[in-house]
Computed example of a mutant assay.
Amino acid sequence: MNMKVAADIGNSTTKMIVEDELFSQPSVIRRLMKKPQITETDLKKNVTNLDENLTVHITSPAIKGTADGLYVIGRKAITTDLDKVQNMNIKLGNKHKHDLPVIMILSMIARKIIKDEFNETGELAESYSAVCELSSAIPASEFSFEKAQILEKRFATKAHTVIVHLGEVRVTINLTFKKVKVTQEGVPAIFSILSEDETILEKFNQMYEKDEKNQHETLKPVDLKTMKIFHVDIGDGTTEYIYTNGVNPILDACSGEKRGVGHATEEATVLLNEELNGLMKINRQSFMSIVADETHNLHNEAVNALDIAKGSQANFILEDTIEKVSNKAGNNVDIVVVYGGGSIQFRQYLFDDLKEFTDQIKTKLLWIPEEKAVNLNVRGLDILNRKVFFNKKR
């Protein structure tokens, strides 16, 4: 079988589109030293619940030899033994060298094959083979064509094997990558915005209709093709600052910084540990579980710490944006566009200040609506797969 795969390997979540299906997993894995205990033998139930119980054995030339082995992936990993999970080190970066993105991508492709084959036939063969065309992206803060090629070659050089555990059943998935394209994060988003209908700009147009100082003609997505755009893509471990002339990145003016939700969480974790005077050591994963659990005895303290840390990160992002719009783009910007998962988390701390700045330099602010903001990059990669990267007519 042949597959076009778009994979957005975020520090928090890995998102994937294959054959029009968008699915995701937390970017977390946990190594197993022995085979998992079988608790369910019904194959249909195991396939249906595969996203919650994705367990795989990976053998791949793209990862360190010592990393070959048995893993639980994503949602399964974060429900078991948080102290032993592996996630992206948001301080170190170098996503193109990490094993975790490779393990996530291989596992999620295998998941897609298992679900599709079972849904179509009601049964599973012992093995399947797939030839993939894969696109992904790495942060602008680390992007170079050489680093992109390193990640491309890790997938494309040799075949990869994923054995998926489904109760008593084992299914072997053999994957080869015919073509791999790695671009920089932020760039695919403009293709996604251009493909959207006019509802993505509805709140933007309403805001400027009411703004007597900055009134404008109604903007349509297609109008962005001819505009100079400064992108602020707020993620978990990095915030990408991308400057494009329409769909074309101006590479010397693109950069990224280690800002985002993950850094706010780590800062808040330190604050909470300080408040507890070392009586108990809370890590990033357990901190977020406290924030999510309103019944936890430390919930209010954790939320307050996170609120302080988000405000601090928002200030950094504001300062970055002002500095880069001035020094990288020479204030020659038609519109500042903000998106990414962090744009939802930081909106209340950042929107007013960023709007004031854009008003001062006589440009406009487009804050992508929450329901669209998270998936712009993966949808953009999918569009690029079909129209640019792997288009046979090209």
Rank of each mutant, 00 (worst) to 15 (best):
T239N: 09
T239H: 03
T244F: 07
N245K: 12
V247D: 05
I250P: 00
L251M: 09
L251R: 13
L251W: 09
S255Q: 02
S255K: 10
G256N: 12
K258Q: 13
R259L: 09
G260K: 08
G260H: 13
T265D: 02
E266H: 11
N273C: 15
E274S: 15
E275P: 08
L276I: 06
L276D: 03
N277Q: 14
R284P: 00
S289D: 09
I290N: 07
A292N: 07
A292L: 07
A292H: 03
E294D: 14
E294T: 10
E294V: 08
T295I: 03
H296M: 01
H296F: 07
N297I: 04
N297D: 05
L298N: 11
H299M: 04
N300I: 03
A302L: 07
V303G: 13
V303D: 03
N304P: 00
A305C: 14
L306P: 08
L306F: 14
A309P: 01
S312W: 09
N315E: 11
F316D: 08
L318F: 03
E319N: 12
E323W: 05
K324N: 10
V325H: 01
K328V: 03
A329I: 02
V333Q: 02
V333C: 00
I335E: 03
V338L: 03
Y339V: 02
G341D: 02
I344H: 06
I344E: 09
Q345H: 11
Q345C: 06
R347L: 07
Q348W: 02
L350K: 12
L350G: 02
F351Q: 05
L354P: 01
K355N: 13
E356R: 07
I361Q: 07
I361P: 03
K362H: 13
L366N: 04
